[in-house]
Amino acid sequence: MLKGMGGLGDMAKMMKAAGEMQGKMAQLQETLAATLVEGESGAGLVKATATAKGTLTALSIDPSIFNADEKEVVEDLILAAIKDAQEKAMEKTKEETRKLTEDMGLPPGLGLPV
């Protein structure tokens, strides 16, 4: 049917594939926003919860660490827990993006924006 029309058939396939990829990326965005990861420090005395997109959603601090003389230690533990949660969020995002690209038959390391 599209004989003699050049690559219009291939263009239609590419447009359909691009639309499917856009839908899957939107679904991945929703999944990452709903997926929670937890980082911790001080053997669990401070815990930070974040979405897989890196948004901090909760912070839990064991009251036993509150001591005015150790304010800097507490601050360091809080920062360490937040960094741990952010690193886990980044890893989860990379993992889910890798799965999506593999499922779509795209080459590894494509670096899709998430």
Rank of each mutant, 00 (worst) to 15 (best):
G105A: 10
L36G: 04
T93A: 15
D62E: 10
L45I: 01
E95V: 01
M21P: 01
E20Y: 03
M5L: 15
A18D: 02
G54N: 08
E38T: 09
G42F: 05
M90I: 01
M90K: 15
D10R: 10
N67H: 14
L59D: 01
M104C: 09
I78C: 13
Q27K: 08
D69Y: 08
M1K: 02
T101A: 12
A89L: 07
G4T: 03
L59Y: 08
E38H: 03
G6T: 00
K24V: 01
S60G: 11
A43R: 08
L77Y: 07
T97L: 13
A85E: 00
G109S: 05
A18I: 02
P108A: 14
M21C: 10
L32V: 02
E75Y: 13
E91L: 09
V73Q: 12
E75D: 12
Q29L: 04
V114Q: 05
A26S: 15
G4H: 05
K16V: 05
E72K: 02
T35F: 10
M21G: 02
N67C: 13
E75S: 13
A18L: 00
M5S: 11
S60H: 13
A48C: 11
S41M: 01
L106H: 12
G19W: 03
A89E: 09
G105N: 08
E70Q: 11
G4V: 04
A48Y: 01
A18R: 03
T31K: 11
T57C: 15
K3S: 10
T97H: 08
V73I: 01
L106M: 15
M1C: 07
